[in-house]
Design a protein around this nucleic acid. Structure first.
Lengths: 159, 159
DNA sequence: GGGTGAATACTCGGATAAAGCCTGTCCGAGTAGTGACGG
DNA sequence: CCGTCACTACTCGGACAGGCTTTATCCGAGTATTCACCC
């Protein structure tokens, strides 16, 4: 079970976009260059964020991406769902219904106990993700590296 | 992000082994047949459980698998780790260290704020998994289908 | 009849292919800016 | 000099290959049983 690498890229890009400011659009190429990432592939991830309504995209010269909402209104869950899709990690294939021990359909009215237990654990994970906003992450990051926002802003302006 | 299908198979097989009883070894072929699963592949998963010390395996005629501990001492986390491996789903690639904004190594003493937030969420998931024993899952399953244990035991004996 | 030995059938275990998803790349549709041209 | 128009350059957007993990399979090492044979 491995999460898409694009999630990390999207999170970093969102923070960078926030530090740059929503008044200015930034191209995928610039965002990729800052972390030495493959441009076209990061573009793909940003498209996913755009479909999810987290960023807005404008084509043409002076185009690029910018945040659609303040970081206070974007959660980790939003980003993960945008990149990974809505499906749960543990998907019950209902193997209890297969094989010689199969029962009539009525016996499976109640959900599988195994699936339910796994879903409960995953719900705890999702709750934590949904309860953490990118604003909190940004705050934590700025406490770790107070001069990072200025440096990032400067680099993206001088280009 | 998709969890290995083998996790589901392993969990069902563990419960089946518990209902059958540890006094009798069950072959991978029988466990697979009961849920119409590919025999050799389920065998692979059971091998992983054996390496993790959750089941014991004995070769030869009258051989097979049996639980190594009571279900009270096996958690969902144990099974997931046995099948999926110990790696976390979100793996920080430290992309902050790459590109033109790279800083001297000393600036990265503290962990990445993004990685830390994602790890916190994943920890909540793991805690829930580690806090749920298979005994609890069995209990829940028996409440849902009280006659299942007897039926399973009977099917595995008549063979 | 009892014991011994070899042959046999059956199991796990790890090494070996096929499939699907993730990663990475490319080119086209559309837009803002720019320059030339005409009035 | 000003407005209009075509052109250019640049961006996102989705369609197109490559690599790696997951899924599935097969055959060999090892063991308990079974049967025949000998004492």
């Amino acid at each position: 079970m491995k999460m898409n690498e694009g999630v990390e890229w999207a999170l970093h890009s969102c923070l960078n976009l926030a530090w740059i400011g929503a008044d200015r659009a930034v191209t995928a190429a610039r965002l990729a260059a800052y972390h030495a990432l493959p441009t076209a592939y990061l573009n793909k991830q940003l498209q996913a964020l755009a479909r999810a309504g987290l960023v807005t995209s404008t084509p043409g010269p002076k185009g690029g991406f910018r945040l659609a909402k303040p970081l206070e209104r974007i959660t980790l869950m939003d980003v993960v769902t945008a990149i990974e899709g809505p499906d749960e990690a543990f998907r019950c294939a209902e193997i209890r219904k297969q094989g010689p021990g199969a029962q009539p359909e009525a016996a499976y009215r109640l959900p599988c106990a195994i699936a339910e237990s796994m879903a409960a654990a995953e719900l705890a994970w999702r709750k934590e993700l949904a309860g953490t906003t990118l604003a909190q992450v940004r705050e934590r990051a700025e406490r770790r590296a107070p001069n990072a926002p200025g440096a990032i802003r400067r680099w993206f302006e001088n280009s």
